[in-house]
Design a protein around this nucleic acid. Structure first.
Length: 278
DNA sequence: CTTTCGTCCTGACTGC
DNA sequence: TGCAGTCAGGACGAAA
């Protein structure tokens, strides 16, 4: 699942491949991803030079030399990969980008929860997709005070609230589970009880887990891979996600007690240790 | 306003 | 071995 670290990894990989390059050919093979492509999407990209590629929340932003930006989201199963010339087209290769040095990048998304659209660069802040989004967890705007204020008075579970992109962007199911475990907070705890004292513990843990994941290229769940085809390695560092029934790594500190449990919240699996998350 | 729930989609996995 | 059923989940819009 592309969450913040995976999208960041993809953006860095794409930057190396494409920044400074001119797009000589763009082909849209399927027109109905999560939202329709803009009219003449491919034609508008052809001949443009790529000035910059960066991550905004879980989106990939590709700045073109005419002031437009491509906005791309990987959804659940989206991938951006380079292919060798002549590689056969896959059923789920939805967009093909060919650069002036022969580099070919394909957007492949079996489940089609992803999207790709265009916006003027200077209108991104007010864009429908971004206008209600919360702070980036790796930016200066995400502070314990800001998070505590956003959670105040809420009755929903903290797990659910952290998945809400209006509160903080970038987190998905895996990293929310991991951050709450590190912070010793129960995923079932009411958001409103996560006061300043608790956000002062939680915020650094959110940052740490994301930074650690970016360092190793993100997580690979099923088939998530980087543009260069390499797998991310962070899944080996998961402490609770996908570890139902396993002994908690902190068990020694709890008299040998603590088994990772799986529950369902808002129709999503939550993994946590009842012994150390309160 | 907040919160919850259904929906989109396909591939991997489970159990008979 | 094969096949039906279940699960995975990001985001959004509708419903409560």
């Amino acid at each position: 699942m592309p969450e913040l670290p995976e999208v960041e990894t993809v953006c860095r990989g794409l930057s190396h491949l494409l920044v400074g390059r001119k797009l000589v050919r763009v082909e849209v093979r399927r027109k109905n991803l999560r939202i329709p492509f803009p009219i003449n999407f491919a034609q508008k990209l052809q001949g443009r030079r790529i000035d910059n590629i960066y991550r905004r929340a879980k989106y990939i932003i590709i700045n073109l030399d005419d002031g437009q930006a491509v906005i791309a989201h990987l959804g659940m199963s989206g991938r951006m990969t380079t292919v060798n010339p002549g590689q056969p087209i896959d059923t789920h290769d939805h967009v093909i980008f060919q650069a002036d040095d022969g580099t070919e990048v394909r957007f492949n998304d079996p489940r089609r929860f992803g999207l790709m659209t265009l916006s003027p660069q200077d209108e991104l802040d007010s864009h429908k997709l971004f206008k209600d989004q919360g702070p980036d967890p790796l930016g200066n705007a995400f502070t314990p005070h800001v998070l505590a204020a956003a959670l105040k008075g809420r009755t929903s579970a903290i797990k659910t609230a952290l998945l809400d992109q209006r509160i903080v962007v970038g987190l998905g199911n895996i990293y929310v589970c991991e951050a709450l475990f590190r912070a010793g907070l129960s995923p079932k705890r009411k958001s409103g009880t996560v006061n300043l004292a608790r956000t002062q513990i939680l915020v650094p843990h959110i940052r740490d887990v994301l930074v650690e994941a970016i360092k190793v290229g993100g997580s690979s769940l099923r088939d998530h891979i980087q543009p260069n085809g390499e797998l991310g390695y962070f899944q080996h560092n998961w402490r609770v996600y996908g570890r139902e029934g396993e002994m908690c790594r902190n068990a020694a500190a709890h008299g040998g007690k603590g088994t990772i449990k799986r529950i369902v919240q808002a129709a999503r699996s939550t993994f946590y240790c009842p012994a150390c998350q309160k």
